[in-house]
Simulated scan of single mutants.
Amino acid sequence: MSYEISAQILYKTPFDPTALMYHGYASYFLAISENDTEQAQFLFNEAINSLRLAILQSSEKVVPQLEFMLGKAYFYKDVLSSSNYYSDLAVKYLLLAKSKGYTAVELPEILGLSYSALGMTNESISAFTEALNIRETDILLLSIAEQYMASNQYSAAEQYLYRISKNCKDEKIILKTHYLLGKIYINKENYTEAENELLKVIEKNENFADAYYELGVIYEKQGDIAKARAEWRKSLRIEYNHIEAQKKLADYKQ
Score class of each variant (00 low, 15 high):
Phe15Cys: 01
Asp16Glu: 10
His178Val: 05
Ala117Ile: 00
Leu53Cys: 03
Ser81Asp: 13
Asn152Glu: 15
Asn187Phe: 11
Leu180Glu: 03
Ala26Gln: 06
Gln159Lys: 14
Lys204Arg: 14
Glu123Asn: 13
Phe128Ile: 04
Lys98Trp: 00
Lys253Gln: 10
Gly71Asp: 09
Ala131Glu: 11
Asp224Arg: 03
Ala250Trp: 12
Gln222Gly: 04
Ala73Tyr: 03
Leu249Val: 09
Ala245Lys: 06
Glu106Gly: 07
Gly223Pro: 14
Gln147Val: 01
Tyr252Asn: 15
Val105Thr: 12
Ala104Trp: 01
Ile186Thr: 07
Asp16Thr: 07
Asp251Val: 02
Glu34Pro: 00
Glu67Cys: 00
Tyr85Glu: 10
Ala156Pro: 06
Ala150Tyr: 01
Pro108Cys: 08
Leu161Ile: 00
Tyr179Ser: 09
Leu142Ser: 14
Thr121Leu: 02
Ser82Ala: 09
Lys247His: 11
Ser151Thr: 05
Phe75Val: 05
Glu38Pro: 08
Ser116Leu: 11
Ala145His: 15
Tyr102Gly: 10
Arg233Glu: 12
Asn152Gln: 15
Tyr240Ala: 14
Ala19Arg: 10
Tyr22Asn: 14
Leu53Asn: 14
Tyr213Trp: 04
Thr18Met: 05
Gly24Pro: 04
Asn241Ser: 11
Tyr86Cys: 15
Asp224Gly: 02
Tyr25Val: 13
Arg163Asn: 08
Arg163Ala: 03
Pro14Gln: 15
Met120Gln: 11
Gln222Asp: 01
Ile186Gly: 01
Ile110Ala: 01
Tyr179Val: 06
Tyr179Lys: 04
Ala97Trp: 03
Thr13Ala: 15
Val91Ser: 14
Thr103Glu: 15
Thr192Trp: 02
Leu89Phe: 09
Lys169Ala: 00
Phe208Cys: 11
Lys183Met: 12
Lys92Phe: 01
Leu181Phe: 08
Leu43Ile: 02
Ile55Ser: 12
Leu118Pro: 13
Asp170Met: 13
Lys227Tyr: 09
Ala131Ser: 13
Thr177Ala: 06
Ala26Gly: 06
Leu70Glu: 01
Leu56Trp: 07
Leu175Thr: 02
Tyr3His: 12
Leu107Cys: 08
Ser126Thr: 11
Ala26Val: 12
Pro64Ile: 03
Lys166Phe: 06
Tyr76Met: 11
Asn84Tyr: 11
Glu220Trp: 13
Arg229Leu: 07
Val79Cys: 02
Lys100Arg: 13
Asn190Gln: 14
Asp210Pro: 04
Lys166Leu: 04
Lys72His: 08
Arg135Leu: 00
Asp251Ser: 02
Thr177Lys: 02
Ser81Met: 09
Ser126Gln: 00
Gly112His: 10
His242Tyr: 09
Glu158Pro: 08
Ile202Trp: 02
Phe68Met: 05
Asp138Val: 04
Ala245Arg: 02
Ala145Tyr: 13
Leu94Arg: 15
Ser126His: 03
Ser151Leu: 04
Leu111Met: 06
Glu46Ala: 14
Pro17Glu: 14
Gln8Ile: 13
Trp232Leu: 12
Lys221Ala: 15
Asn84Trp: 02
Ala7Lys: 13
Lys200Trp: 06
Lys247Pro: 09
Ser83Gly: 15
Val62Met: 15
Tyr74Gln: 09
Lys98His: 07
Lys234Asn: 10
His178Gly: 10
Met1Glu: 10
Leu215Trp: 01
Ala117Leu: 03
Tyr102His: 14
Gly24Cys: 06
Ile48Cys: 00
Met120Glu: 14
Phe208Ala: 09
Glu4Leu: 07
Phe75Ile: 08
